[in-house]
Design a protein around this nucleic acid. Structure first.
Lengths: 114, 114
DNA sequence: TATATCCTTGGCAATATTGCCAAATAAGAA
DNA sequence: TTCTTATTTGGCAATATTGCCAAGGATATA
């Protein structure tokens, strides 16, 4: 890896890191349906407001969401809906893993039956 | 978030976490071109063998790659090529962020020129 | 068997992430 | 202005990640 490659992969990793948390993935899913205020998301997630606010700032810094003030509230919106294709791929990996598990289990069953 | 939702988002986050590292993203890119032995990847990355081996085991545990022994070597192969669509999306986010930066800069230039 | 090669694992220190509480800030309402 | 609501920020302890070194398999070759 040369310097430029390192920079490229670091840039990618930084965005992926922003997604690498259950609450933040949940937020992305929720914002895909509609923009939401911090308070709404906080209630849906069931964590401290400050925690959710920090999660949102991680997503914002990564350029995944944008915010907009409306009165005292702050509305967050998903900026790149392609994030969801991404999640489709993750689901494929999960399914593939599950399939592998099932195969392992059925293999053991067969052997035990002999 | 109910219990099942928590489990779902945790499962997704675990796979995304496995991708959230520059060296591991590089490995995924390299394995997309062709399967590789640990030693080859180690040389390409320029880290300690043990470090690369641990990165590979993270990817393997997440179900993103598979390994296969060949003599003393261990060949790793990308299991889910859809991972790359995923990276396409990440590139979109990076480009979008860059665009935003350019806009901010050009805005400042305009003001400075007045 | 001995020896070399390739890879994984254990251990550990440095660093980063997470989530809560408390305090600060922002904006509208009284 | 003062009060209230909505959100962000600072601080901190608990936890997780990272990367090196050293040691431990596993497999081929002499």
């Amino acid at each position: 890896m040369n310097q430029n490659e390192v920079k490229l992969y670091e840039a990618r990793a930084n965005i992926i890191k922003a997604l690498a948390h259950p609450s933040r993935l949940y937020i992305v899913d929720m914002l895909n349906k509609q923009p939401r205020a911090v308070g709404e998301l906080t209630e849906m997630i069931g964590a401290d407001t400050s925690t959710v606010s920090k999660h949102l700032s991680v997503l914002k810094n990564a350029g995944i969401v944008v915010d907009e003030k409306r009165g005292t509230a702050v509305i967050y919106t998903l900026k790149c809906p392609c994030i969801l294709d991404f999640i489709g791929c993750i689901e494929e990996v999960i399914e593939s893993n599950t399939k592998t598990q099932v195969e392992i289990l059925s293999c053991c069953k067969t052997r035990a039956a002999r």
